[in-house]
Design a protein around this nucleic acid. Sequence first.
DNA 1: ATATTTGGTTTATATTATAAACTTAATTAT
DNA 2: ATAATTAAGTTTATAATATAAACCAAATAT
Lengths: 96, 96
Amino acid sequence: MFKELNPLLHSELRLGVMSILLSVEEADFVYLKQETKATAGNLSVQIDKLSKAGYIEVTKTFKGKMPCTLCRITPNGVEAFEEYVEALKTYIYRKS
Amino acid sequence: MFKELNPLLHSELRLGVMSILLSVEEADFVYLKQETKATAGNLSVQIDKLSKAGYIEVTKTFKGKMPCTLCRITPNGVEAFEEYVEALKTYIYRKS
DNA sequence: ATATTTGGTTTATATTATAAACTTAATTAT
DNA sequence: ATAATTAAGTTTATAATATAAACCAAATAT
């Protein structure tokens, strides 16, 4: 019937982050913040969750002298995203 | 960029209820409970929220001697659902 | 030198989802 | 007939989640 919606992805901000990372190969904190319009605190927390779930990989480097947090999606992340989309379809394209 | 995901619909159970009501014209509490596999308490709360938002219409009747809570989607509900789907697409079919 | 901005993290709070406990009435079993 | 069970919900307490406010360290501007 309905497939379960992975609660880690079923969150506006985390979904946004994943969506960006699917299309962009790598993105830093500042870019993600701009694109998602999230506050830094919220973004930080959600990046952490995605990272702990193994959906994204986070590398802390420096751009010049400024800290720079780079994120990229992992194969597990891609898979989870695709499954999430499949699950969503059971809600959205429903045959009575 | 990303469209906002209506938080009232961005909930697994409420989305399930709306999805059913879109395809079925009318459904009672017991049916919704079976299809969504929700607990009665949870379903009751979520039906109430959808109803207060004007997305569904709830009528309390009796089937024989047993109480029967009938739900149907409203035009506002249909519209909100469609907008929600459009918003979702900005996350899912994203052109980099 | 001090004030402000940048790039974050931590923590406290508000919101939300969920289940457990309860209610009322109808069945079923004894 | 009455006691126990089930049905159909609702209310309320709790657990989980999201979010922003407060904070920190380093860099830059004044």
